[in-house]
Design a protein around this nucleic acid. Structure first.
Length: 685
DNA sequence: GCAAGGTC
């Protein structure tokens, strides 16, 4: 007889088995099972692959809604998960006891609960719960020494969360699709949900801010001074001068007059080392440095993890417990090409203390390199991410960096100008994080209070207040983190879904633009189901589920209440269904033919009415030329080269009348001028 | 061809 230990993922099963003793691994149906026999107990440690059970629609018909009758069923489309269920189910038959050892959080509780209930024959309440905050040997042993009955409330809250998300998400998504069908018999893959809604709304709100932005003029004034044959510049004390008259009067008061140093303040700025990466930090940094999308970064990190080069990446922790063995990892890294010099600096430093962040994770520490040397050659992007993880890890052990700041005030005819000097004193941790960071260096001449400085010139410049920046993938993900919607494992996916739905699109500079379709969806939801595009739905859901967890609310009632509200919203929605569908249909077609991304390149020689525009196809993501009179029946199109920047030259081809565009490549190695018309007689020559 | 959440 043995105790069956159910874990959330294979990696966790392996660590738990190792912490419990000396495991023997077997692989029935390709699923790892670890056998650990001690003097006093015998464990079989097995593992799920995340959720093995999910909610299923009992009607099985996607055009029917509302669907409120849900059941838990094995996840389909994942043969490995199906095999895991089979293996666990088989192992449960001869088990005398059960330990629920999934991640100690709400989803982990659900994963283990469902396996114990559905695969092990209703063993959840009889099982014991292992509670750990990270998978270190000590914590695992401690958790197994103090096993308790599981909290049914936590599982109930988690299962209700699945229900609520399904009920809102699936039904509203179907309502959107159905409205389109009622209006035009069209079909478009539409969706909305508790996280998609607010995320799209963030982008919409930003888009509106940008559209409503009125540029306000202001003036900046800069002065050039000289001292001891060294020139330096200083800014007027007010960084923005509001009127032209004021700016002019300042310039005319100061022009040609030398200045006097009225104040010199020396200070030391200390910049502490960074915290170790959690997945969000890594995604943001990889975007900042390499312009890698968060989903891509996650995929690369997983690959590195599967090659044992880095620790488990899907973590929210910014902690590095000593049990991972700092010294051992750092000395192993010293044997991997290029890190020797950095690691020896750290190893000679004596005590190693990482600068940990505030965030924690129920199962894993922050992301760190394992010290294992890459067995196969990494692709250039894989290497970049790996190298970033290594350098970040090393940097967290570094000393604070120190920089000297010199802030100088210069008086010119009773006007004050400010100059700032920055000089590095001590690089500290930045040495490990090169080339991704460096101390600012900006020298000023030696200046003392009372010194005279020669005025070499004063310039004013008119500027305009800028609209806020568009979100990019990294900043939208950061906004989701800030607003606490989605999870570390799903945020990148949610953004990818919004792209896939054509709700948002990437502009040339990486900014996220909202398409007409995105606007139409948000508009309809704002009118009929405002809760679904607001973060307050997540907040109130969390509150309700907290009560379910504590046992002070019935999950059935919480779900019923949500259903009532949804039905109310849906009936109002259905009344206006045709109008909504028409609006969405129009928006979908304008998004699909790329009306937003159009750049005019010349007049259309075919219909002689429209303008030829450069369009990015939302389907193929490729650019091409199309006529603005497309809806009026002009089908003039032409392909474009997919690489290089297209320059609008405003010239028509003398042979055929189609526009000629320039194609410029980044390194200026090539430069073409081409007629876009594929059938142009000039091409036959 | 619908959510969000796990994980591979």
């Amino acid at each position: 007889m043995y105790t069956l230990v159910v874990c959330e993922k294979p990696d966790a099963a392996r660590r738990i088995a190792q912490a419990l003793g000396d495991p023997k691994e077997s692989k029935p149906a390709g699923i790892s099972v670890f056998d650990v026999a001690n003097s006093d107990c015998h464990y079989k440690v097995c593992s799920a692959l995340g959720h093995l059970y999910g909610l299923a629609d009992s009607t099985k018909n996607r055009s029917v809604y509302p669907v409120l009758d849900l059941e838990w069923a094995p996840v389909d489309k994942n043969p490995r998960a199906a095999r895991a269920i089979k293996v666990i189910s088989e192992l449960s038959k001869n088990a005398s006891a059960f330990v629920h050892a999934c991640d100690y959080d709400q989803e982990g509780e659900v994963i283990g609960h469902n396996i114990l209930q559905y695969a092990c024959g209703g063993k959840y309440e009889k099982a014991l719960r292992a509670k750990f905050s990270t998978l270190t040997d000590e914590e695992i042993r401690e958790s197994f020494a103090s096993l308790e009955r599981p909290s049914g409330g936590l599982a109930e809250a988690g299962r209700s969360r699945h229900m609520l998300d399904f009920i809102y998400g699936v039904n509203l998504s179907r309502a959107l699709a159905q409205s389109l069908k009622m209006a035009s018999n069209g079909y478009c893959n539409l969706s909305i949900g508790r996280v998609q809604g607010p995320t799209l709304a963030f982008a919409v709100d930003r888009e509106l801010e940008i559209r409503l932005h009125v540029p306000d003029p202001y003036w900046t004034i800069a002065a050039q001074f000289e001292k001891n044959n060294q020139t330096f510049s200083a800014q007027y004390e007010k960084p923005k001068v509001g009127t032209l008259a004021e700016a002019k009067s300042i310039v005319s008061a100061c022009i040609g007059r030398d200045g006097t140093v009225s104040d010199v303040v020396d200070s030391k700025a200390v910049l502490g080392p960074p915290t170790p990466f959690n997945i969000g930090d890594l995604q943001r940094e990889a975007y900042r440095l390499f312009k890698l999308g968060p989903g891509y970064t996650l995929a690369i990190a997983e690959k590195l993890y599967l090659q044992a080069l880095i620790s488990y990446p899907r973590t929210s922790s910014q902690k590095l417990p000593p049990s991972i063995g700092y010294g051992k990892i750092i000395s192993s890294l010293s044997r991997i090409g290029g890190y020797g010099q950095l690691t020896s600096m750290l190893l000679s430093k004596g005590r190693l203390v990482p600068n940990e962040g505030r965030m924690t994770d129920p199962a894993h520490p922050a992301i760190y390199p394992t010290g294992v040397a890459p067995q196969q050659k990494l692709s250039s992007l894989e290497f970049k991410v790996y190298d970033l993880v290594v350098k970040r890890f090393l940097a967290t052990f570094g000393d604070p960096a120190i920089s000297r700041h010199t802030d100088v005030s210069i008086d010119v005819n009773s006007h004050t100008f400010k100059a700032q000097g920055r000089s590095p004193v001590y690089e500290g941790w930045m040495v490990f994080y090169k080339p991704h960071v460096r101390l600012e260096q900006h020298e000023l001449p030696e200046l003392r209070k009372g010194d005279l400085v020669k005025n070499l010139g004063i310039d004013m410049e008119e500027k305009f207040t800028q609209p806020p920046y568009r979100y990019n993938q990294a900043s939208l993900l950061a906004k989701m983190e800030q607003e606490q919607i989605g999870t570390k494992a799903t945020r990148a996916d949610i953004i990818a879904t919004l792209f896939k739905r054509n709700y948002i699109a990437s502009s040339v500079r990486g900014g996220i633009e909202v398409t007409d379709l995105g606007f139409a969806v948000i508009d309809s939801m704002r009118t009929f189901v405002p809760a679904i595009i607001s973060t307050s739905l997540t907040r109130s859901m969390e509150e309700q589920l907290e009560k379910v967890e504590q046992g002070s609310a019935e999950s059935v009632l919480v779900i019923e209440q949500a259903v009532d509200k949804l039905i109310e919203s849906l009936s109002a929605f259905i009344e206006k269904e045709v109008d909504i569908g028409a609006r969405i249909g129009n928006a979908a077609s304008s998004s699909a033919n790329g009306a937003q991304a159009a750049t005019m390149i010349g007049s259309c020689p075919v219909c002689k009415k429209g303008q030829l525009r450069m369009i990015k196809s939302y389907k193929t993501k490729k650019r091409f030329v199309g006529c603005s009179n497309y809806s009026g029946g002009c089908k003039a199109t032409a392909p474009l080269p997919q690489k290089g920047a297209i320059r609008v030259l405003g010239k028509a081809c003398p042979e055929c009348g189609w526009p000629i565009v320039g194609v410029v490549f980044a390194r200026r190695s090539k430069h073409w001028k081409i007629c876009v018309n594929m059938q142009c007689p000039s091409k036959k020559k």
